[in-house]
Amino acid sequence: MAQPASIEVPVKASGASRVFIKRAEQFGLIVVWLAMIAVFGYLQPATFLTWPNFSTIFGSQAVLVVVTLGLLIPLTANDFDLSIAFVMTLSSMTVAVLNVNYGIGIGWAIVAALALGLLVGLINGLLITVFRIHSLIVTLGTGTFLHGFTLWMSDSMTISGISSSLINAVIVDRLFGIPLEFYYAIGLAAIVWYLLDYTALGRRILFVGRGREVARLSGINTDRIRIACLVVSGLFGALAGVLYAGTQGAADPVSGTSYQLPAFAAAFLGSTSIVPGRFNPWGATVAVYFLVTGITGLVFLGFSSFIQEMFYGGALVVAVTLSQLVRGRQEQQF
Protein backbone atom coordinates (compact mmCIF):
# COMPACT_ATOMS: atom_id res chain seq x y z
CA MET A 1 0.00 0.00 0.00
CA ALA A 2 1.50 3.30 -0.99
CA GLN A 3 0.08 6.17 0.96
CA PRO A 4 -1.27 9.13 -0.92
CA ALA A 5 1.72 11.46 -1.02
CA SER A 6 1.19 14.99 0.19
CA ILE A 7 2.94 16.61 -2.70
CA GLU A 8 1.93 19.85 -4.34
CA VAL A 9 -1.18 19.73 -6.45
CA PRO A 10 -0.44 19.90 -10.17
CA VAL A 11 -3.18 22.33 -11.03
CA LYS A 12 -3.01 25.55 -12.92
CA ALA A 13 -3.57 28.03 -10.17
CA SER A 14 -1.90 31.04 -8.69
CA GLY A 15 0.15 30.79 -5.50
CA ALA A 16 -2.66 32.30 -3.43
CA SER A 17 -5.17 29.86 -4.89
CA ARG A 18 -2.90 26.95 -4.14
CA VAL A 19 -2.58 28.01 -0.52
CA PHE A 20 -6.34 28.40 -0.32
CA ILE A 21 -6.91 24.94 -1.81
CA LYS A 22 -4.38 23.44 0.57
CA ARG A 23 -5.99 25.07 3.60
CA ALA A 24 -9.46 24.10 2.38
CA GLU A 25 -8.37 20.49 2.20
CA GLN A 26 -6.57 20.64 5.54
CA PHE A 27 -9.49 22.11 7.47
CA GLY A 28 -12.37 21.13 5.19
CA LEU A 29 -13.63 18.37 7.46
CA ILE A 30 -13.56 20.66 10.49
CA VAL A 31 -15.44 23.37 8.58
CA VAL A 32 -18.05 20.84 7.43
CA TRP A 33 -18.26 19.54 11.01
CA LEU A 34 -18.90 23.05 12.35
CA ALA A 35 -21.40 23.70 9.56
CA MET A 36 -23.21 20.50 10.45
CA ILE A 37 -23.34 21.55 14.10
CA ALA A 38 -24.76 24.91 12.98
CA VAL A 39 -27.47 23.26 10.87
CA PHE A 40 -28.50 20.81 13.58
CA GLY A 41 -28.32 23.63 16.13
CA TYR A 42 -30.58 25.79 13.96
CA LEU A 43 -33.09 22.95 13.56
CA GLN A 44 -32.98 21.77 17.20
CA PRO A 45 -31.64 24.73 19.21
CA ALA A 46 -33.18 23.74 22.55
CA THR A 47 -31.65 20.28 22.66
CA PHE A 48 -28.74 20.04 20.23
CA LEU A 49 -26.89 23.22 21.20
CA THR A 50 -26.52 22.25 24.84
CA TRP A 51 -23.48 21.33 26.87
CA PRO A 52 -25.01 18.02 28.02
CA ASN A 53 -25.35 17.05 24.36
CA PHE A 54 -21.77 17.94 23.47
CA SER A 55 -20.37 16.39 26.62
CA THR A 56 -22.27 13.23 25.70
CA ILE A 57 -20.93 13.28 22.14
CA PHE A 58 -17.38 13.76 23.38
CA GLY A 59 -17.71 11.26 26.18
CA SER A 60 -19.05 8.33 24.23
CA GLN A 61 -16.57 7.68 21.44
CA ALA A 62 -13.33 7.14 23.28
CA VAL A 63 -13.24 3.44 22.45
CA LEU A 64 -13.53 4.08 18.72
CA VAL A 65 -10.90 6.84 18.89
CA VAL A 66 -8.41 4.53 20.61
CA VAL A 67 -9.02 1.67 18.16
CA THR A 68 -8.57 4.10 15.27
CA LEU A 69 -5.35 5.49 16.76
CA GLY A 70 -4.06 1.96 17.13
CA LEU A 71 -4.88 1.19 13.50
CA LEU A 72 -3.19 4.18 11.98
CA ILE A 73 0.26 3.38 13.38
CA PRO A 74 0.73 0.18 11.31
CA LEU A 75 -1.18 1.87 8.46
CA THR A 76 1.50 4.56 8.44
CA ALA A 77 4.10 1.81 8.08
CA ASN A 78 2.03 0.33 5.25
CA ASP A 79 0.63 -2.61 7.24
CA PHE A 80 -2.98 -3.49 7.98
CA ASP A 81 -4.01 -4.74 11.40
CA LEU A 82 -7.29 -6.58 10.95
CA SER A 83 -6.94 -8.18 14.38
CA ILE A 84 -7.26 -4.98 16.41
CA ALA A 85 -11.00 -5.23 17.11
CA PHE A 86 -10.53 -8.87 18.13
CA VAL A 87 -7.69 -7.85 20.45
CA MET A 88 -10.03 -5.26 21.92
CA THR A 89 -12.72 -7.88 22.49
CA LEU A 90 -10.22 -10.32 23.99
CA SER A 91 -8.88 -7.59 26.26
CA SER A 92 -12.31 -6.59 27.59
CA MET A 93 -13.16 -10.25 28.13
CA THR A 94 -9.85 -10.86 29.92
CA VAL A 95 -10.62 -8.02 32.30
CA ALA A 96 -14.11 -9.43 32.94
CA VAL A 97 -13.09 -13.06 33.36
CA LEU A 98 -10.18 -12.29 35.70
CA ASN A 99 -12.00 -9.66 37.71
CA VAL A 100 -15.48 -11.19 37.93
CA ASN A 101 -14.99 -14.95 37.62
CA TYR A 102 -11.62 -15.24 39.39
CA GLY A 103 -11.86 -12.28 41.77
CA ILE A 104 -8.50 -10.85 40.70
CA GLY A 105 -8.02 -7.14 41.42
CA ILE A 106 -9.02 -4.85 38.57
CA GLY A 107 -5.49 -3.41 38.31
CA TRP A 108 -3.92 -6.82 37.71
CA ALA A 109 -6.71 -7.77 35.33
CA ILE A 110 -5.94 -4.67 33.26
CA VAL A 111 -2.21 -5.43 33.31
CA ALA A 112 -2.91 -8.96 32.06
CA ALA A 113 -5.17 -7.63 29.28
CA LEU A 114 -2.54 -5.13 28.14
CA ALA A 115 0.16 -7.82 28.22
CA LEU A 116 -2.03 -10.01 26.00
CA GLY A 117 -2.40 -7.13 23.55
CA LEU A 118 1.36 -6.68 23.40
CA LEU A 119 1.85 -10.41 22.89
CA VAL A 120 -0.64 -10.57 20.02
CA GLY A 121 1.03 -7.57 18.39
CA LEU A 122 4.43 -9.23 18.73
CA ILE A 123 3.14 -12.48 17.20
CA ASN A 124 1.57 -10.54 14.31
CA GLY A 125 4.79 -8.65 13.72
CA LEU A 126 6.99 -11.74 13.81
CA LEU A 127 4.73 -13.73 11.48
CA ILE A 128 4.66 -10.85 8.99
CA THR A 129 8.39 -10.13 8.98
CA VAL A 130 9.95 -13.56 9.58
CA PHE A 131 7.76 -15.47 7.14
CA ARG A 132 7.19 -12.54 4.76
CA ILE A 133 3.42 -12.95 4.78
CA HIS A 134 1.20 -9.98 3.95
CA SER A 135 -0.12 -8.25 7.06
CA LEU A 136 -3.67 -8.56 5.76
CA ILE A 137 -3.47 -12.36 5.79
CA VAL A 138 -1.65 -12.69 9.10
CA THR A 139 -3.89 -10.33 11.06
CA LEU A 140 -7.03 -11.78 9.48
CA GLY A 141 -5.90 -15.19 10.70
CA THR A 142 -4.85 -14.14 14.18
CA GLY A 143 -7.98 -12.03 14.57
CA THR A 144 -10.23 -14.96 13.70
CA PHE A 145 -8.23 -17.21 16.02
CA LEU A 146 -8.59 -14.68 18.83
CA HIS A 147 -12.34 -14.51 18.22
CA GLY A 148 -12.60 -18.26 18.76
CA PHE A 149 -10.33 -18.02 21.80
CA THR A 150 -12.51 -15.27 23.28
CA LEU A 151 -15.66 -17.33 22.73
CA TRP A 152 -13.97 -20.27 24.45
CA MET A 153 -12.69 -18.34 27.46
CA SER A 154 -16.09 -16.71 28.00
CA ASP A 155 -18.13 -19.83 27.24
CA SER A 156 -19.87 -17.54 24.70
CA MET A 157 -21.40 -15.64 27.59
CA THR A 158 -21.54 -11.95 28.45
CA ILE A 159 -19.98 -11.30 31.84
CA SER A 160 -21.20 -8.38 33.94
CA GLY A 161 -20.19 -7.17 37.38
CA ILE A 162 -16.81 -5.60 36.54
CA SER A 163 -15.34 -3.56 39.41
CA SER A 164 -17.02 -0.19 39.80
CA SER A 165 -13.61 1.46 40.21
CA LEU A 166 -12.96 0.86 36.48
CA ILE A 167 -16.47 2.02 35.53
CA ASN A 168 -16.04 5.17 37.63
CA ALA A 169 -12.65 5.90 36.11
CA VAL A 170 -14.03 5.53 32.59
CA ILE A 171 -17.55 6.97 32.32
CA VAL A 172 -18.90 7.94 35.74
CA ASP A 173 -16.23 10.42 36.91
CA ARG A 174 -16.17 13.59 34.84
CA LEU A 175 -14.13 16.69 34.14
CA PHE A 176 -16.10 19.69 32.84
CA GLY A 177 -19.06 17.37 32.55
CA ILE A 178 -17.29 15.00 30.13
CA PRO A 179 -16.52 11.42 31.18
CA LEU A 180 -12.82 10.83 31.79
CA GLU A 181 -12.48 8.36 28.91
CA PHE A 182 -12.59 11.33 26.51
CA TYR A 183 -9.43 12.75 28.07
CA TYR A 184 -7.69 9.38 27.93
CA ALA A 185 -8.42 9.19 24.20
CA ILE A 186 -7.24 12.76 23.59
CA GLY A 187 -4.09 12.05 25.64
CA LEU A 188 -3.35 8.99 23.51
CA ALA A 189 -3.96 11.00 20.33
CA ALA A 190 -1.43 13.55 21.56
CA ILE A 191 1.12 10.79 22.23
CA VAL A 192 0.64 9.30 18.75
CA TRP A 193 0.89 12.78 17.20
CA TYR A 194 4.15 13.44 19.07
CA LEU A 195 5.48 10.00 18.13
CA LEU A 196 4.72 10.33 14.43
CA ASP A 197 5.57 14.00 13.95
CA TYR A 198 8.34 14.82 16.41
CA THR A 199 10.48 11.73 16.87
CA ALA A 200 13.04 10.05 14.67
CA LEU A 201 11.10 6.80 15.10
CA GLY A 202 7.99 8.48 13.73
CA ARG A 203 9.83 9.67 10.63
CA ARG A 204 11.26 6.18 10.14
CA ILE A 205 7.75 4.67 10.37
CA LEU A 206 6.60 7.10 7.69
CA PHE A 207 9.65 6.36 5.56
CA VAL A 208 9.03 2.60 5.85
CA GLY A 209 5.42 3.14 4.85
CA ARG A 210 6.22 5.28 1.84
CA GLY A 211 8.94 3.11 0.39
CA ARG A 212 9.89 0.00 2.27
CA GLU A 213 12.68 -1.06 -0.03
CA VAL A 214 14.17 2.42 -0.20
CA ALA A 215 14.02 2.63 3.59
CA ARG A 216 15.75 -0.73 3.93
CA LEU A 217 18.51 0.24 1.49
CA SER A 218 18.94 3.45 3.48
CA GLY A 219 19.89 1.41 6.52
CA ILE A 220 16.58 1.41 8.39
CA ASN A 221 15.74 -1.88 10.07
CA THR A 222 12.32 -2.07 8.46
CA ASP A 223 11.37 -5.36 10.11
CA ARG A 224 11.97 -3.97 13.57
CA ILE A 225 9.93 -0.86 12.75
CA ARG A 226 7.04 -2.93 11.42
CA ILE A 227 7.07 -5.25 14.45
CA ALA A 228 7.11 -2.24 16.77
CA CYS A 229 4.11 -0.73 14.96
CA LEU A 230 2.10 -3.93 15.31
CA VAL A 231 3.05 -4.26 18.99
CA VAL A 232 1.84 -0.70 19.61
CA SER A 233 -1.30 -1.47 17.65
CA GLY A 234 -1.91 -4.53 19.86
CA LEU A 235 -1.39 -2.38 22.95
CA PHE A 236 -3.89 0.21 21.72
CA GLY A 237 -6.39 -2.54 20.92
CA ALA A 238 -6.01 -3.82 24.47
CA LEU A 239 -6.36 -0.31 25.91
CA ALA A 240 -9.56 0.14 23.89
CA GLY A 241 -10.78 -3.15 25.37
CA VAL A 242 -10.18 -1.89 28.90
CA LEU A 243 -12.14 1.27 28.11
CA TYR A 244 -14.89 -0.84 26.50
CA ALA A 245 -15.17 -2.97 29.63
CA GLY A 246 -15.28 0.17 31.77
CA THR A 247 -17.91 1.80 29.56
CA GLN A 248 -20.29 -1.14 29.76
CA GLY A 249 -19.41 -2.61 33.12
CA ALA A 250 -19.51 -5.89 31.23
CA ALA A 251 -17.80 -7.76 28.42
CA ASP A 252 -19.24 -9.89 25.66
CA PRO A 253 -17.35 -12.03 23.16
CA VAL A 254 -18.84 -10.60 20.00
CA SER A 255 -19.93 -6.96 19.90
CA GLY A 256 -16.44 -5.41 20.03
CA THR A 257 -15.61 -6.89 16.65
CA SER A 258 -18.10 -4.49 15.06
CA TYR A 259 -15.63 -1.66 15.74
CA GLN A 260 -13.35 -2.86 12.96
CA LEU A 261 -15.00 -1.16 9.99
CA PRO A 262 -15.88 2.14 11.73
CA ALA A 263 -12.25 2.39 12.87
CA PHE A 264 -10.97 1.92 9.32
CA ALA A 265 -13.56 4.42 8.10
CA ALA A 266 -12.38 6.98 10.65
CA ALA A 267 -8.71 6.36 9.80
CA PHE A 268 -9.31 6.89 6.07
CA LEU A 269 -11.65 9.83 6.61
CA GLY A 270 -9.06 11.34 8.97
CA SER A 271 -6.39 11.03 6.31
CA THR A 272 -8.25 13.69 4.29
CA SER A 273 -7.92 16.26 7.05
CA ILE A 274 -5.35 18.18 9.16
CA VAL A 275 -2.42 16.49 7.38
CA PRO A 276 -4.10 15.55 4.10
CA GLY A 277 -2.71 12.46 2.44
CA ARG A 278 -1.34 10.98 5.66
CA PHE A 279 -2.90 8.92 8.37
CA ASN A 280 -2.82 11.33 11.30
CA PRO A 281 -4.20 11.17 14.82
CA TRP A 282 -5.94 14.55 14.95
CA GLY A 283 -7.58 13.97 11.59
CA ALA A 284 -8.78 10.55 12.75
CA THR A 285 -10.07 12.00 16.04
CA VAL A 286 -11.94 14.76 14.21
CA ALA A 287 -13.35 12.14 11.83
CA VAL A 288 -14.76 10.08 14.72
CA TYR A 289 -16.48 13.09 16.27
CA PHE A 290 -17.66 14.34 12.87
CA LEU A 291 -19.38 11.02 12.26
CA VAL A 292 -20.96 10.77 15.72
CA THR A 293 -22.15 14.39 15.53
CA GLY A 294 -23.91 13.60 12.27
CA ILE A 295 -25.53 10.49 13.71
CA THR A 296 -26.58 12.32 16.87
CA GLY A 297 -28.10 15.15 14.86
CA LEU A 298 -30.02 12.72 12.67
CA VAL A 299 -31.40 10.98 15.76
CA PHE A 300 -32.43 14.39 17.14
CA LEU A 301 -34.31 15.02 13.91
CA GLY A 302 -36.04 11.67 14.25
CA PHE A 303 -34.46 9.82 11.33
CA SER A 304 -34.42 6.04 11.33
CA SER A 305 -31.23 4.08 11.80
CA PHE A 306 -30.89 3.25 8.10
CA ILE A 307 -30.33 6.97 7.39
CA GLN A 308 -27.52 6.90 9.97
CA GLU A 309 -25.85 4.03 8.14
CA MET A 310 -26.16 5.91 4.88
CA PHE A 311 -24.63 8.99 6.49
CA TYR A 312 -21.74 6.96 7.88
CA GLY A 313 -20.85 5.34 4.59
CA GLY A 314 -21.77 8.33 2.44
CA ALA A 315 -19.66 10.78 4.46
CA LEU A 316 -16.60 8.59 4.05
CA VAL A 317 -16.98 8.23 0.29
CA VAL A 318 -17.84 11.92 -0.26
CA ALA A 319 -14.96 13.18 1.89
CA VAL A 320 -12.35 10.97 0.27
CA THR A 321 -13.71 11.76 -3.21
CA LEU A 322 -13.58 15.53 -2.58
CA SER A 323 -10.09 15.18 -1.20
CA GLN A 324 -9.01 13.34 -4.31
CA LEU A 325 -10.58 15.96 -6.57
CA VAL A 326 -8.76 18.73 -4.74
CA ARG A 327 -5.50 16.82 -5.01
CA GLY A 328 -5.78 16.21 -8.72
CA ARG A 329 -7.05 12.60 -8.59
CA GLN A 330 -3.73 10.97 -7.70
CA GLU A 331 -3.89 7.20 -7.72
CA GLN A 332 -4.42 5.67 -4.27
CA GLN A 333 -2.76 2.31 -3.93
CA PHE A 334 -3.88 0.48 -0.82
Binding site: T47, F48, S60, S255, G256, T257, S258, I295, F300
Partner: peptide, 25 residues
Protein backbone atom coordinates in the same frame (compact mmCIF):
# COMPACT_ATOMS: atom_id res chain seq x y z
CA UNK B 1 -39.23 2.72 18.16
CA UNK B 2 -35.49 2.44 17.51
CA UNK B 3 -34.34 -0.43 15.32
CA UNK B 4 -30.81 -1.84 15.45
CA UNK B 5 -29.51 -4.70 13.32
CA UNK B 6 -27.79 -7.28 15.51
CA UNK B 7 -24.26 -6.75 14.08
CA UNK B 8 -24.54 -3.02 14.88
CA UNK B 9 -25.52 -3.33 18.52
CA UNK B 10 -22.00 -2.69 19.81
CA UNK B 11 -21.42 0.49 17.84
CA UNK B 12 -24.87 2.01 17.26
CA UNK B 13 -27.08 1.54 20.31
CA UNK B 14 -25.16 3.67 22.81
CA UNK B 15 -24.80 6.85 20.69
CA UNK B 16 -28.34 6.60 19.31
CA UNK B 17 -29.95 6.05 22.72
CA UNK B 18 -27.99 8.84 24.36
CA UNK B 19 -28.97 11.22 21.54
CA UNK B 20 -32.61 10.21 21.92
CA UNK B 21 -32.48 10.75 25.69
CA UNK B 22 -31.00 14.23 25.22
CA UNK B 23 -33.36 15.12 22.37
CA UNK B 24 -36.42 14.36 24.48
CA UNK B 25 -36.00 15.02 28.21
Amino acid sequence: VMNFAVPDWGTRITPAVQAALLADP
